[in-house]
């Protein structure tokens, strides 16, 4: 198993609140890891630390063997780190297609010089990316709403737009933050199928999710977090069966 993302001795606290306490975690290519834990366990904070949204107090993170500790968010993304957000963070002034079109690591036309001096090259690459975006929208079941504004589509579909946008990155490591929260019906199966396919194509996937059935069906492995600490690691079935963890999760 190839380690794609390696987290070592990660610590972070905000005042007295510890969100990461000596976290050590590896994400492997082709595997889906589920992060489980009650609210406030530090799951989303871990995503924020990995993606550079929040700087850790100590510790190190490598992506494909390369240290990303000192890189800003966008450079981490360009190395193949993609994520979705718990609260969507889509672009409301763009259509579904245009939201997804912004996802490629190397966005054609980002440099003004290439827009001016290589207009044809940019146009050709834009057309290629548009084809890729359409293919991803089809795969995620969003082909019919490609031209819609994101706030006009169902919540489950909006979650899928977030996933589709992250897929455009052609990521090595994909972090999904509560992809199933508020999702029902068709989108449920679609998200599950898409995440499985992504992992099978060799991407290291990490999912934060409260929907235990979804995590159990999807994840190869699970990690239980509590108060910023990784308390246990094993199959999701094992973690759910552990009465000590269940007590921490439900507070009973």
């Amino acid at each position: 198993m190839t380690d794609v993302l390696r987290i070592r001795d990660l610590n972070k606290s905000f005042g007295g609140i510890v969100v990461a306490d000596e976290v050590n975690l590896d994400l492997h290519a082709g595997r889906v890891l589920g992060l489980i834990g009650p609210n406030g366990a530090g799951k989303t904070s871990l995503f924020n630390l990995v993606t550079g949204v929040v700087k850790p107090d100590t510790g190190s993170i490598t992506l494909d063997g390369q240290s990303i500790d000192n890189l800003p968010i966008y450079q981490r993304a360009r190395l193949g780190l993609a994520r979705t957000w718990q609260n969507l963070r889509l672009f409301p002034s763009l259509s579904v297609l245009d939201n997804v079109m912004l996802g490629p690591r190397d966005y054609p036309g980002e440099k003004l010089t290439s827009l001016i001096f290589d207009a044809r090259g940019v146009a050709r690459r834009q057309a290629e990316e548009q084809d890729r975006a359409h293919a991803i929208l089809k795969r995620t079941g969003l082909a019919g709403v490609a031209q819609s504004r994101v706030q006009d589509i169902a919540y489950g579909q909006q979650k899928l737009v977030g996933v589709a946008r992250a897929l455009m990155n052609d990521a090595r490591c994909l972090l999904l933050d509560e992809p199933m929260a508020g999702v029902e019906g068709q989108a449920y199966g679609a998200i599950q199928r898409v995440v499985r396919d992504i992992a099978e194509s060799g991407v290291a996937v990490c999912v934060v999710e409260h929907n235990v059935a979804f995590v159990r069906d999807l994840c190869d492995e699970g990690v239980f977090m509590f108060a910023g600490k990784v308390l246990a690691r094993g199959t999701v079935g094992e973690l759910i069966a552990d009465p000590r963890l269940t007590e921490l999760y439900f507070g009973t």
Partner: peptide
């Protein structure tokens, strides 16, 4: 619309 989400796409 959203600078953080924009950065996370590699921009």
């Amino acid at each position: 619309d959203d600078e953080l989400a924009f950065s996370m796409l590699g921009r």
